[in-house]
Amino acid sequence: MKITKILNNNAVVVTDGNQEKIAVGSGIAFHKRKNDIVNVHKIEKLFVIRENEKLEQLLSRIPEEHFTISEEIISYAEKYLGTKLNEHIHIVLTDHLSFAIEREREGIHLKNKLLQEIKILYKEEFEIGLWALTHIKEKLGFDIPIDEAAYIALHIHTMKPQGGDLRQTVRQTTILRDMVHSIKRFLKIKIEEDDISYHRLITHLRFTLERGKGYEVHSMDREMLEMIKKKFRKSFECASEMARELSSFHGIDLPEQELGYITLHIERLRKV
Rank of each mutant, 00 (worst) to 15 (best):
M1D: 03
F30T: 11
H31N: 14
H31P: 03
K34G: 09
V38M: 02
V38K: 14
V38C: 04
K42D: 04
K42S: 10
V48Q: 12
I49T: 08
L55P: 07
S60E: 15
P63N: 08
P63G: 01
E65T: 06
E65W: 04
T68Y: 04
E71I: 07
N86V: 00
L97I: 15
S98T: 13
F99K: 15
A100E: 09
R103T: 00
H109W: 02
K111M: 04
L114D: 08
L115H: 09
Q116S: 15
Y122I: 06
E125Q: 11
E125I: 09
L130W: 06
L133D: 09
K137E: 11
K139T: 12
K139I: 00
A149E: 15
I152L: 06
P161M: 12
L187M: 08
D195Y: 11
Y198L: 07
I202V: 15
L209F: 00
Y215W: 14
E223Q: 12
L225C: 07
L225H: 03
E226C: 00
I228T: 04
I228W: 01
F236K: 05
M242L: 13
E245D: 12
E245T: 02
F249P: 00
F249D: 12
L264N: 05
H265S: 07
I266V: 06
R268N: 05
L269P: 01
